[in-house]
Write a protein that binds this DNA or RNA. Structure first.
Lengths: 342, 342
DNA sequence: CATAGCAGAGACAACGTTGTCTCACACCGG
DNA sequence: CCGGTGTGAGACAACGTTGTCTCTGCTATG
């Protein structure tokens, strides 16, 4: 009773050969109803569960997919993972998750681990910038990246540059010339693209770039809070904030409320719960992580069928959720003064 | 180049026996340095990755743990899963996730799937109420439940009853006699316990129970919003809200702001991002999902060592995060009027 | 009535790995 | 110089399953 029943135990109990049990399990039609019945009874009597590992070993086809993201405890990724799991279950696939914590080494380890598990495929939010080590596994373990891309791999992303341009431009249109970008992390590709958009819009509008307005923040929420305080204590503090991602955005919004500094114009890249309930309500560039996850999974499944497809970069539309926070205008006087000073 | 290299390919390239490669991989010390070097070179040359499934098949010891929760896209569980994954990786274990979507059938399927994968153990937020089917797997696949408990299984929970009593009592202390409970779902054990606490406090204070104040809500956020509107449109609407879980709480808070009904006293069971930034800031009963996940994993690992331990129910302390929303007093006149009416 | 054909069931090998056993060899002490 | 000992490496079986082949016995057909 202590050891798990195997197929041979079932066969012994039903007085048939092992192979016949295998046939019953796999729904092969050429089994006499009487035998099938006996086998099925033995299966329930013994609480037999087929050993997936042995099966996969024999057939070569695993039945798991891997998902590797920055952190599971992040609204963006938990929604994305959720989409993948919802779909995987309909195909009888299990989902193995791993987080990178923004560490390229850990990412590498996670991917190697997934390779050793013979996953059918991987959905990855890449951190590291060298993924050549995946090359030998490409045909056996397809990889679709999400949120960020890697040359040669399928990706499902968002047009960060365009969306961020749009957001920053809206702040500029309200007269802001001192705009801080909170949430920049040089390890993350999207952060770079959003920063580039930010810088381009500013220079196109004749606004000098100030590196102090683009503090580097690590992924902890405390880092964003500290960055906000730093930036606000400058001699020429910003009058508007562009928040580079939803995770940091919630921290910053909290901190703004604690500091009583809700006079700053704000746009967040990524919507989040209660963005509509704070005052002023936070305007957001809206991406759909659930959709991104769903499309990535869909693409992965396509690759199951044909391993030699060309890599495709798929872009998901973003929206702009117009609430109140981006409508706050720059204080006229200060604005003029500082633009002259520069 | 297309097929994955196996141990025998490595052995052939290094001109040693398969077993020697196995020894090198497993760090057995009795291998000549020269041979070890040759093997290691072959391993990198062939991009060899050991096949975990074959290994587990032989050794019997899997290297994965399963996690089954209501939904991954839920701040409570994503944090909990995150704790598990952080710890699992340090032990070289992979994490397979599955969600139930509050469906007992799906839960059953997920658990059977995990059994077939020969996971080392499972951390489960139970939905169904019959888990006897786990009995035969108990010794081989230990199960630790979280958030809710199942008789005979280890659990890591919170004292829902006491914490909810405390919360509701605070509202009563502010003079509220018409308190709605939003977020009740009969499928969830914790919801029942919180409801019981709510009812007990009310009756102890001589307040009649009104079933219309305890609407049943499904897990979608829209359900909570609808329930709020229903309750507010009653002839005698509540003056205070006890929100039974963080997921529904965010929806309700959003809705309250949209409706301009921030005059209601509120306490949420479970803290959430921006609870401190909305106005009034939402007072919360604080549970620590990350800690719950960590303790559950710790317990699971204990069971790896000794499969015959007694089941232990561990309770994690809750806190009360006192902000502003629970301090709103009941409007005196109305309160008196209605209490007379009843 | 004889035989080809087919359906149903079993025997056996194999998937990639590791545990156990055996073997070869070098080294040491008597 | 010989036997015992220990160390390093290989042969073989096995984990639980499925694919392939084979065998048996029945049915249908000429």
């Amino acid at each position: 009773m202590n050891e798990r029943a195997g197929i041979k135990d079932v066969a012994a109990m039903a007085n048939v050969s092992i192979k016949t049990v295998s046939r019953v399990i796999n729904g092969v039609s050429t089994v006499e109803p009487a035998m099938r019945r006996r086998v099925e009874e033995a299966i329930v009597a013994l609480n037999y569960v087929p050993n997936t590992m042995a099966r996969s070993l024999k057939t070569g086809a695993g039945n798991t997919v891997g998902v590797v993201v920055d952190s599971i405890d992040d609204v963006f990724f938990s929604s994305l993972v959720s989409a993948i799991e919802d779909r995987a279950i309909t195909l009888g696939l299990s989902v193995i998750i791993g987080s990178t914590g923004f560490d390229a080494g850990r990412e590498h380890a996670q991917l190697l681990n997934l390779a050793s598990q013979h996953v059918r495929g991987v959905i990855l939010a890449p951190v590291g910038n060298d993924h050549t080590f995946l090359e030998p596994y490409r045909s056996i373990m397809p990889v679709v990246t999400v949120d960020r891309s890697v040359p040669g791999l399928d990706s499902v992303t968002v047009d960060d540059y365009a969306a961020a341009r749009d957001g920053v431009a809206r702040l500029v249109a309200r007269g802001h010339r001192r705009i801080a970008l909170i949430g920049y992390d040089p390890r993350i590709q999207t952060a770079d693209r959003r920063r580039a958009a930010y810088e381009d819009v500013l220079t196109e509008n004749g606004i000098a770039l100030d590196p102090r307005f683009v503090p580097e923040v690590s992924f902890e929420s405390a880092a964003a809070t500290a960055a906000l305080k730093d930036v606000l204590s400058l001699a020429d503090p910003p009058t508007a904030l562009f928040l580079a991602n939803a995770r940091h955005a919630t921290s910053v919004i909290s901190a703004m409320h604690h500091l009583g500094r809700t006079d700053l114009a704000v746009i967040s890249f990524g919507d989040f719960a209660l963005a509509d309930a704070v005052n002023p309500a936070v305007s957001c560039i809206d991406q759909d992580p659930y959709l991104i996850g769903a499309l990535a999974f869909e693409r992965l499944v396509e690759r199951f069928g044909d391993t030699s497809l060309e890599a495709v970069d798929r872009t998901v539309e973003t929206g702009f959720v117009s609430r109140a926070s981006h409508l706050i205008s720059a204080p006229k006087l200060t604005d003029v003064l500082t633009s002259e000073r520069r």
